[in-house]
Nucleic acid binder design. Structure first.
Length: 113
DNA sequence: CACCTGACATAAT
DNA sequence: AATTATGCCAGGT
């Protein structure tokens, strides 16, 4: 029973989700790269779209990290159990983490032309 | 290393 | 309908 359900996703959100789906397992992308790929110069708009994440496992929003390769946020939180969950998923997918909790530079996915 | 500014879309007023 | 406020940033000073 849909209570607090999702509203119709906007074109922008859909765009973000689609691009995110292009990221293979074991790799991660950044908000900035994703945004630039969509022609959007703002990474925050990306985060806002992901934050709503209507499609949880369908859209691997957990494969998105900060431009500094930081873990970034998740489920609308920048810290907390949700974040730990995100890290766990990435590690489960084969993403390597540095001792600082940052993602390995080699795990960054590059978008095709 | 801390702070402020910039760019963009959505939600709320 | 228009404006204000905010948000899983980025980048530069």
């Amino acid at each position: 029973m849909p209570t607090a359900n999702h509203r119709p996703p906007t074109a922008f959100e859909t765009r973000v989700y689609e691009a995110l789906c292009r990221v293979p397992v074991g790799k991660v992308t950044t908000y900035g790269r994703l945004g630039r790929h969509l022609g959007c110069g703002s990474a925050q708009a990306i985060g806002q779209a992901l934050r709503r994440n209507p499609f949880a496992p369908e859209v691997p929003c957990h494969r998105v990290v900060r431009g500094d390769r930081g873990i970034g946020g998740f489920a609308g939180q920048t810290d907390g159990g949700e974040i730990e969950r995100k890290i766990r998923m990435l590690r489960a997918e084969g993403v390597a983490f540095e001792a600082d909790g940052r993602v390995a530079a080699g795990c960054l996915h590059d978008f095709p032309g």
